[in-house]
Deep mutational scan, measured.
Amino acid sequence: MKVIFLKDVKGKGKKGEIKNVPDGYARNFLFKKGLAIEATPANLKELE
């Protein structure tokens, strides 16, 4: 799953980066803790 990092996550990504991460990791950790959001076309446009 492609995500946009909202905060730095040690060993995974830095704020503003767009990366592919495992689906479970994104849903169960990154999204729940507010560390990242899904890289949807709308979210990507908002980032620019």
Score class of each variant (00 low, 15 high):
3 V>F: 00
24 G>K: 11
19 K>N: 04
39 A>N: 03
41 P>L: 13
13 G>H: 12
23 D>T: 15
43 N>R: 12
27 R>L: 14
26 A>I: 08
46 E>G: 12
29 F>Q: 08
10 K>L: 13
41 P>D: 13
43 N>F: 10
19 K>H: 10
4 I>S: 01
15 K>V: 08
42 A>E: 15
48 E>Q: 13
27 R>G: 03
12 K>R: 14
33 K>Q: 13
7 K>V: 15
22 P>M: 07
42 A>H: 13
21 V>W: 02
16 G>W: 10
33 K>L: 15
2 K>L: 15
7 K>A: 14
15 K>F: 06
9 V>R: 01
18 I>S: 03
12 K>L: 15
5 F>K: 00
46 E>R: 14
34 G>E: 06
24 G>D: 15
44 L>D: 05
29 F>W: 11
29 F>R: 05
35 L>I: 06
20 N>P: 07
20 N>I: 15
18 I>M: 07
38 E>Y: 05
43 N>S: 09
16 G>N: 07
3 V>I: 08
28 N>A: 07
31 F>Y: 05
1 M>F: 08
6 L>T: 07
46 E>D: 11
24 G>E: 14
26 A>Q: 04
34 G>H: 12
24 G>T: 12
43 N>T: 09
35 L>D: 02
31 F>A: 02
41 P>T: 11
7 K>N: 07
13 G>M: 04
27 R>V: 12
12 K>E: 10
28 N>Y: 13
33 K>T: 12
6 L>P: 00
40 T>K: 06
8 D>S: 09
12 K>Q: 14
42 A>T: 09
6 L>H: 01
12 K>F: 15
35 L>E: 02
48 E>W: 09
12 K>N: 09
48 E>A: 14
46 E>V: 14
4 I>G: 00
3 V>H: 00
17 E>L: 03
5 F>S: 00
44 L>I: 13
48 E>F: 11
32 K>Y: 07
6 L>Q: 03
44 L>S: 05
11 G>R: 05
3 V>L: 03
39 A>L: 08
10 K>N: 10
16 G>E: 02
7 K>I: 10
23 D>I: 15
3 V>W: 01
18 I>Q: 04
12 K>P: 01
8 D>R: 06
47 L>Y: 14
10 K>R: 14
14 K>T: 09
36 A>Y: 00
30 L>N: 01
32 K>I: 13
12 K>A: 15
45 K>Q: 12
23 D>G: 11
17 E>R: 02
27 R>I: 14
42 A>M: 11
5 F>I: 01
5 F>Y: 07
6 L>I: 13
21 V>D: 01
28 N>H: 11
10 K>T: 11
13 G>P: 01
21 V>F: 09
1 M>R: 08
15 K>D: 03
29 F>V: 15
11 G>H: 09
26 A>P: 02
15 K>Q: 10
12 K>G: 13
23 D>Q: 12
9 V>I: 08
30 L>D: 01
13 G>I: 05
28 N>R: 09
44 L>G: 04
9 V>D: 01
37 I>S: 04
46 E>L: 15
25 Y>S: 03
17 E>P: 00
22 P>V: 06
16 G>V: 01
17 E>M: 07
33 K>D: 10
40 T>R: 04
48 E>R: 11
46 E>K: 15
37 I>V: 13
22 P>Y: 08
19 K>I: 11
35 L>M: 08
43 N>A: 13
29 F>G: 05
26 A>S: 03
21 V>Q: 04
25 Y>I: 07
44 L>E: 06
5 F>T: 00
28 N>E: 14
16 G>K: 02
11 G>F: 06
2 K>W: 15
19 K>R: 12
14 K>S: 09
23 D>M: 15
38 E>F: 05
27 R>M: 10
7 K>S: 10
36 A>I: 06
17 E>V: 04
2 K>D: 12
32 K>N: 08
43 N>M: 09
